[in-house]
Design a protein around this nucleic acid. Structure first.
Length: 254
DNA sequence: ATGTCACCTGGTAGGTGA
């Protein structure tokens, strides 16, 4: 099976690109971030016509996530149980025996800001929940927009980005804490092109100059790891005329 | 480079978030 994640930066704008992408990449399940749509406006009918059942969890203007699957997901959970959050950032479900946790992790704005403190609280709550979730579902994939570049090799200019948002030691420690639960970065299980990013700023001709960050990830559980045969970033949609600033990440599972 | 894009309010521009 294949699973994918994509921050679409407004599904209202990007729906045609999503449908085109799914037509070329008929993955079994997909998680979306930054749909920016209330659930009553979610394009469930269009996605159903494309062969996907949807579980949307959205809000107006900001955030919003969704889980799409060819075989409908069961045991669907929205946001982190027990963590009071007025932002729609998580949708999880079980597809074909695989637990999929789709997440739009907080951006954090800048170290020291209130949004950064929220990001840290959020990451702590996620890890606490996932620890239990992994016991219930040993075959688990955590994927989405993490808003964390785990290592310097995930940053186009590590000197310029040192200590900046997405690259602070504190954020990276929380990323490693997720790995410590028994997860592995699927992208790094395989040889990859150097300077592989999943996000490029809209400004500064960043995509053309390949100045980006790898902040979108697929983390797989130890029990799932041996079944993962490929993981890649698809830069194709970033070349579209009106692209999302993020590229999809795909993983293949035997 | 304060460089773009999306969405909101409220108005035909400015603010916020990313």
């Amino acid at each position: 099976m294949q699973i994918a994640t994509w921050n679409v930066n407004s599904l209202a704008v990007r729906l045609p690109q999503l449908l085109e992408w799914l037509s070329a990449h008929p993955v079994d399940a997909m998680v979306l971030q930054e749909t920016k749509l209330t659930d009553d406006r979610f394009p469930a009918a269009e996605l159903a016509a494309a062969g996907y059942a949807s579980h949307a969890f959205g809000q107006r203007t900001y955030n919003g996530v969704a889980l799409l699957a060819r075989a409908d997901a069961v045991d669907v959970v929205r946001n982190i149980p027990g963590f009071d959050d007025d932002q729609a950032r998580v949708v999880a479900g079980t597809v074909g025996g695989l637990r999929i946790v789709g997440a739009y992790m907080p951006n954090g704005q800048a170290p020291g800001s209130e949004k950064f403190a929220y990001k840290i609280r959020w990451l702590e709550a996620l890890a606490a929940w996932l620890k239990d979730e992994l016991v219930r579902h040993p075959q688990l994939a955590l994927m989405g927009d993490f808003n964390i570049a785990p290592e310097d090799r995930d940053v186009h200019d590590p000197v310029a980005w040192a200590g900046q948002i997405h690259c602070t030691d504190e954020e990276r420690a929380h990323f490693r804490a997720l790995l410590g639960l028994g997860l592995v970065d699927a992208f790094r299980l395989f040889e990859q092109p150097p300077r592989s990013w999943s996000w490029w700023d809209y400004r500064n001709l960043a995509f053309r100059r390949n100045q980006g960050l790898r902040i979108d990830h697929v983390l797989v559980s130890d029990a799932l790891r041996s079944r993962v045969t490929a993981c890649s970033i698809d830069k194709g949609p970033r070349r579209n005329e009106r692209p999302s600033d993020h590229a999809p990440v795909i993983a293949t599972i035997d």
